[in-house]
Every structure is written in structure tokens, then in C-alpha cells.
Amino acid sequence: YFQGQLNAMAHQIQEMFPQVPYHLVLQDLQLTRSVEITTDNILEGRI
């Protein structure tokens, strides 16, 4: 994955969860590489 793709995914998640800091979303995406998994992590309070 290149950074631009991760940034696009992070923006997509931020639209759904504007209360979660962008850098935390991006940090999780770098591990998961998945909008779905990061979204689940937010919903389950891991982020």
C-alpha cells in the first residue's frame, strides 16, 4: 500500500467517525490495511 491509498482510506473513515483523531485512524490503518477492520476497531473502542 502506498501512503496516498492509506490517506484516502483514513479520510473515508473520518467521514464516518469525525470524532476520532486522523492520526489515530491512519496509525491503525497502517497495521490493518483495511477500512473494515479499522472501522470495527473504532466501534469496539480499541481506538
Rank of each mutant, 00 (worst) to 15 (best):
Y1Q: 14
Y1K: 13
Y1A: 14
F2W: 15
Q3H: 05
Q3V: 07
Q3R: 07
G4N: 10
Q5P: 07
Q5S: 10
Q5D: 14
Q5W: 15
Q5F: 12
L6A: 04
N7D: 11
N7P: 09
A8D: 11
A10S: 04
A10D: 00
A10L: 09
H11G: 07
H11D: 11
Q12N: 07
Q12E: 09
Q12L: 11
I13F: 02
I13W: 02
Q14W: 14
Q14K: 12
Q14G: 08
E15D: 10
E15M: 13
E15N: 09
E15F: 08
M16N: 07
M16A: 09
P18C: 06
P18A: 04
P18N: 03
P18D: 03
P18G: 04
Q19W: 15
P21I: 07
P21Q: 07
Y22G: 12
Y22D: 08
Y22H: 14
Y22T: 12
H23T: 07
H23R: 05
H23P: 11
H23W: 13
L24M: 10
L24F: 06
V25G: 01
V25W: 00
Q27S: 11
Q27P: 01
Q27D: 08
D28W: 06
D28P: 09
D28H: 02
L29C: 04
L29W: 02
Q30F: 12
L31G: 06
L31V: 12
T32C: 05
T32E: 02
T32Q: 01
R33K: 13
R33V: 07
R33L: 14
R33E: 08
R33Q: 15
R33C: 15
V35R: 07
V35N: 02
E36L: 10
E36R: 12
E36A: 10
T38I: 01
T38P: 01
T38V: 02
T39N: 04
T39Y: 07
T39R: 12
T39D: 01
T39L: 13
D40E: 13
D40M: 15
N41T: 02
N41P: 01
N41Q: 01
I42H: 00
L43I: 09
L43R: 12
L43F: 05
E44M: 14
E44G: 11
E44Y: 11
E44C: 11
G45I: 03
G45K: 06
G45N: 07
G45H: 05
R46H: 06
I47T: 04
I47M: 07
I47P: 02
I47H: 02
